[in-house]
């Protein structure tokens, strides 16, 4: 099942907030620098329907939660990066289990794409066995 392009953008912003580029003392690569959009296509093509449906629902929840979480009447992608991070951090500390699992879900899905890429693994210091990217990633973005 394909997602609306705005839903794809929302998810891209979530992943870019979780995995920013050029962190001092951290990885230089971030979600913006790798083809996470193609990983989403791969997820949608292969993952069980309940997983992709659940992820879609969670994208909506996160997009419209800032008012209730930090009192800002904006969607998640419309917030400044610092505020987006504050939303994720607050959700992650929630006493309500399902709420605090929200950031974990996006982190887990993002990790399967991002941290599986040889370029990212090399930055993490791994002795990478596969020099080519996984099928879904195709050629790296220029």
């Amino acid at each position: 099942m394909s997602w609306w392009s705005f839903e794809r953008r929302w998810l891209a912003v979530i992943w870019q907030t979780l995995l920013p580029s050029g962190t001092p003392g951290g990885l230089a690569l971030g979600a913006r620098d790798v083809p996470m959009d193609r990983f989403l296509d791969e997820l949608l093509a292969c993952a069980p329907r309940r997983v992709t449906l659940g992820a879609r629902l969670c994208v909506w929840l996160l997009t419209f939660c800032p008012l209730f979480v930090i009192g800002r009447p904006r969607t998640f992608p419309a917030l400044a990066e610092e505020e987006r991070r504050a939303v994720l951090a607050k959700l992650g500390q929630s006493d309500v289990y399902l709420v605090r699992e929200l950031p974990t879900l996006f982190k887990m899905l993002g990790a399967l794409g991002f941290a599986g890429l040889p370029a990212v693994q090399a930055e993490m210091g791994l002795a990478v066995r596969d020099s080519s990217a996984p099928d879904w990633a195709g050629e790296p973005k220029p």
């Binding site: 995995l19 951290g26 990885l27 941290a115 930055e123 791994l126």
Partner: peptide, 14 residues
């Protein structure tokens, strides 16, 4: 971690 904190944790994976 989340955001930069996570990226720093990943950098010390080794």
């Amino acid at each position: 971690g989340l955001g930069p904190e996570l990226m720093r944790e990943l950098a010390q994976y080794a």
